[in-house]
Amino acid sequence: LYPHSLRNIDELCASIVRSHRETSQYRVEELHALRWKLFNREEIQAYQSKSVDEMWQHCAIRLTEAVQYVVEFAKHIPGFRMLSQNDQIALLKTGSMEVVLVRMSRLFNTENNTVFFDGKFAGTEVFKSLACGDLITAVFDFAHGMCALKLTEQQIALFSALVLINADRPCLEDKGRVQRVQRSVEFGLTHILHRDNQESLMHKLYQRVAVLRSLCSLHMEKLRWFSQRYPLTAHSLFPPLYKELFA
C-alpha cells in the first residue's frame, strides 16, 4: 500500500485522477461552456414557490445522486477495496458529503456566485425555500474559498481522496489499515503539490478540511430540524440512501 518509489507514487496518483475523472458528473470543459446559463426570474420564482418539504426532497435527491458518484470514486482509490466492508461504509458515511462539497467547487462560478444545479447556474436565492439560509451561505462561501485556491483537476482528485480516507472517522474496525491508505494518499498529494511547485497549498487544504466538518454538522443540524417539522417527508419521501447516510 505504501508507495516506495516515484513510479509507485505516480501510479497511485494516476489511479486516483482517473477515478475522479470517470466518476465526475460533469467535465470541466462542459461546465465552462455552460457558465453563463443562468436561471431566469420565472424559473427562480418557481423554485422559491416550492414548499419547504418539496424543496428539501428535491435537493435530497440531487445530493443522493452526487453521493452515488462519490461511492464509485472511492471504489477505485488504491487500497480502499482492501479495507473491511465495515470500514468502507464508515468512511463513506462520514466522508461522502464532504467529497460532494469539494466536488461542488468545480461547479461554482465565482464571477456571479452561482452553482450548477438542475442544468443551469443558480444563486443562493434559488434555495430560499429550504429555509436554511445560513447553511446555503456557508456552502457557497466554502465553494468560493475552494475556487480561490485555483486547484487543478489532479489536485482536486487527490484532495477528495484524502478527505475520504481518514483514519479518525468513527466506527472503524482497523484504524491502522485505514491509516496506511491515508498515508499513501497524503504522499500522493504532497508529491503532486511538490511537482506543481505549490507546497504551500497543503496547509490551506487542511484548513478547508476543518470547514468541511462544520458544514456537515450544520447539514445534520438542519436535517434534524426538518425531520421534526416534516416527519412524513423525511421518513417516506427522502431517497433511501440519503436516509441511510444522514438520518
Binding site: V71, Q85, I89, C171, L241, L245
Partner: peptide
C-alpha cells in the same frame, strides 16, 4: 454498520464498469 447500511453496502458490492 453493514446491517444498517444495506444500500451503501450493495453499491460497494456492485462490480464497477
Amino acid at each position: 454498520l453493514k446491517e444498517k447500511h444495506k444500500i451503501l453496502h450493495q453499491l460497494l458490492q456492485n462490480s464497477t464498469s
